[in-house]
Write a protein that binds this DNA or RNA. Structure first.
Lengths: 197, 197
DNA sequence: CATCAATCTTGACACTGTCAAATTGCGTTG
DNA sequence: CAACGCAATTTGACAGTGTCAAGATTGATG
């Protein structure tokens, strides 16, 4: 809470922290470099020394999000206590609850604000690509273990199953479904459709 | 192209038309009431007599989009030349190509810009609700005709199948999948997963 | 202690959306 | 036909935003 010093010390870190909070509170739209500066107790354009523009800031946050995402997802992929089928169901449940509980962050990571027309940083593209590759690999595993239909091409299958979860998450987050949609039932129905019979 | 007259005559119509073009060109973000005014050859704030704020304008456009959507979808639902199964496949194909060819418009209609935190007009909610209800009804039909699994609750099934298509559309539009993803194969894979075996 | 380069601030510009107060001119009425 | 009313449009103004260029400050280095 010191204000006397001209040099902030760890502005970059503080900015990211503040931005993280800000995004959780009001979403991407609510993030403004100027408000951010005020929040951190620094002057309007100070952030520009650490982030070339607003987009770079957002990409940095999204990268962070993907790293956490990957960790949490892996924890489920490798949960020895569950059968493979149960792991898949747990994954669906985790995906939905994570997306809903971190709606604004999910929106940042997978939303068009960052991805449209090559706004994504190389770093961001890279980590996102890794996450998806992991998804393809685990899909192949699940096919082998009879969780997902073996007949389909793994890449396509990964795309479509991810698409399903992503679409449901988006519709729930954006409130296009009625607000009281029972997430459990939706997850179960999705599992029934996607999993091998 | 007259400019002499103070009264424009049909400003509202002109504004909507211009906004429609603008959204196709640069997306929602690119729509600015001021640019719109310039485009139509009228003064900055003229639009405010017809649209209380920018959001109302966007909602109006989205409504329009939903009406067209409903027409086109119905044309496929009722296509007598196709078997029920082929109608469903055709629907998937139509959904994807429509979404991709009208990406910016799709983004407006189903994106969070309008839906988050009750920004949607009552009119918009109403037409969107109708579209979804139609979707539920047709889902029930498809279950009856053995296209979709009969065991699932129609409402949930409609939510999940729509979620799949929506998610795929979003991922394709936002360029999160690699750019050269073969839409045909993705549609086929989705059909295989969703349809009754 | 003087200098320097990194760090932060100030000033400025071009945009946005939005409100309140003029202005304009068409249609109707006295 | 003139005056008036009222809806359509404009002008002015304010608070935001991102971003650039130039200046101020300071801790570290020689």
């Amino acid at each position: 809470m010191k204000k006397a010093s001209y040099h902030h010390g760890n502005l970059r870190h503080s900015l990211i922290k503040a931005a993280r909070d800000m995004i959780r509170e009001g979403g991407i739209e609510a993030v403004s470099l100027r408000k951010l500066a005020v929040r951190v107790g620094v002057s309007r354009t100070a952030a520009y020394h650490y982030f070339k523009d607003k987009n770079i800031l957002l990409c940095t946050l999204a990268e962070e999000g993907f790293h956490i995402w990957q960790e949490e997802a892996n924890r489920i992929f490798l949960d020895e206590k569950l059968s493979h089928k149960d792991r898949y169901k747990a994954y669906i449940r985790w995906y939905m609850t994570y997306a809903l509980e971190n709606a604004e962050y999910y929106d940042l990571m997978f939303g068009r604000a960052i991805w449209k027309q090559n706004m994504a940083t190389e770093n961001l593209k890279s980590i996102a690509y890794d996450v998806f590759q992991k998804q393809v690999a685990i899909t192949r595993q699940w096919q082998k273990y009879g969780v997902l239909p073996a007949g389909e091409d793994s890449l396509r299958l990964a795309q479509v199953t991810w698409g399903t979860l992503h679409g449901l998450a988006r519709l729930l987050i954006d409130g296009i479904y009625s607000d009281d949609s029972p997430i459990d039932e939706i997850c179960d129905c999705a599992a029934n459709l996607l999993m091998d019979k």
